[in-house]
Design a protein around this nucleic acid. Structure first.
Lengths: 183, 183
DNA sequence: ACGACCATGTAAACAGTTACATGATTTA
DNA sequence: TAAATCATGTAACTGTTTACATGGTCGT
């Protein structure tokens, strides 16, 4: 139940059309809450019907026309409520860890190549986060809003740092193993 | 599409009934691939219909009777295929990071208490992982299977270590902030 | 006028969650 | 013999993904 709140947050940061939101969910906010354009359009419809957002005056309602939304007071209130509410962490699902555990019983054949590929992806993501940090959070800027957003970015950087380190060790271990296909 | 593979892995580690699998998905394998008993029973039915697993001879098919399953060669082959196949990482969804980003626009009121609660949960999980490490991976044991499973556990330990550290900083920052409810 | 792309949308399939139902076994 | 718990299951719902459809705009 967090997609509407991700959208409300994005719209409060800047009123946007569906496609603009889609673009922002491919970077920025999408780094920790991804969504496709189909999810976004569906949810925008619900939020508008619910009185939490509205289309900006300039927007045409016809198909193929850009339509921008802004958050109404009811939407802001709902987001504040949700942000403050206690929530249990969702259980994890990590296919790569599962595959390593599977490899312990069926063998590691073919695994190393994909571990290397994941390592490269995480390195790239880490580099991108570090670019964003240099660009958006130079030393000195520290309004409360910036401190919070920087904290979120630090989580991303530290997580990618962990994954690159862990995958490096994993590749070494798997490479050093006898290459059987049964356990 | 990983639940069947999680189940195949668990069944290869040890043939089990639905309830036993459910228990193991509450610890062990469930730490990185959670599943409820409804998912498990549904999937066991599919895997059996598909010829990847079968009920052990001793098992009665009546309701309320324990029924254990073992993996057939077709199931092992499918698991090996899946383990070796290239897979893109799934996009992340982390509600807590989203809430911090939301707090940057609607204020941090009420957030600190839940951050502290999450910190406590992660500390507990970290302690549990460390217990498992002491119990199951004493220095010296290092068959290939153990090394892989230990690697998976290390990922869990390092991730929880990251979260406890990050949440500690987050609590400090949020506590130090002026407690407004708009941004 | 045609192709490429922009922008919004529909539909169906798939995965995961929540609520409830049912029979069997154990324990007070 | 009643209540609690074990064990398996059904059904309905919510959320996510994938494939496709439709109209508008821009460049050639």
């Amino acid at each position: 139940m967090s997609l509407p709140h991700a959208i409300l947050t994005a719209l409060l940061e800047r009123p946007s059309s569906g496609l603009e939101l889609t673009r922002r969910f491919d970077r920025s906010i999408g780094y920790f809450w991804s969504a496709t354009h189909q999810q976004i359009y569906r949810e925008l419809g619900k939020l508008e019907a619910d009185g939490q957002i509205r289309a900006l005056a300039s927007a045409q309602p016809t198909r193929g026309q850009k339509k921008s939304y802004e958050v109404l007071p009811a939407g802001r209130a709902e987001l504040a409520r949700w942000t403050a509410a206690a929530q249990d962490p969702k259980p994890h699902r990590d296919a790569l860890l599962l595959r390593l555990r599977a490899a312990a019983v069926v063998g590691t054949e073919g695994l190393e190549a994909d571990l290397r590929r994941h390592l490269a992806l995480h390195r790239r993501q880490l580099a991108e986060y570090e670019d964003i940090e240099r660009r958006d959070f130079p030393p000195g800027k520290d309004s409360p809003e910036d401190r919070l957003r920087h904290l979120v970015l630090r989580a991303g950087i530290d997580l990618e740092t962990f994954w690159t380190g862990w995958l490096t060790r994993a590749v070494e271990e798997v490479a050093a193993m006898p290459d059987r296909s049964a356990g």
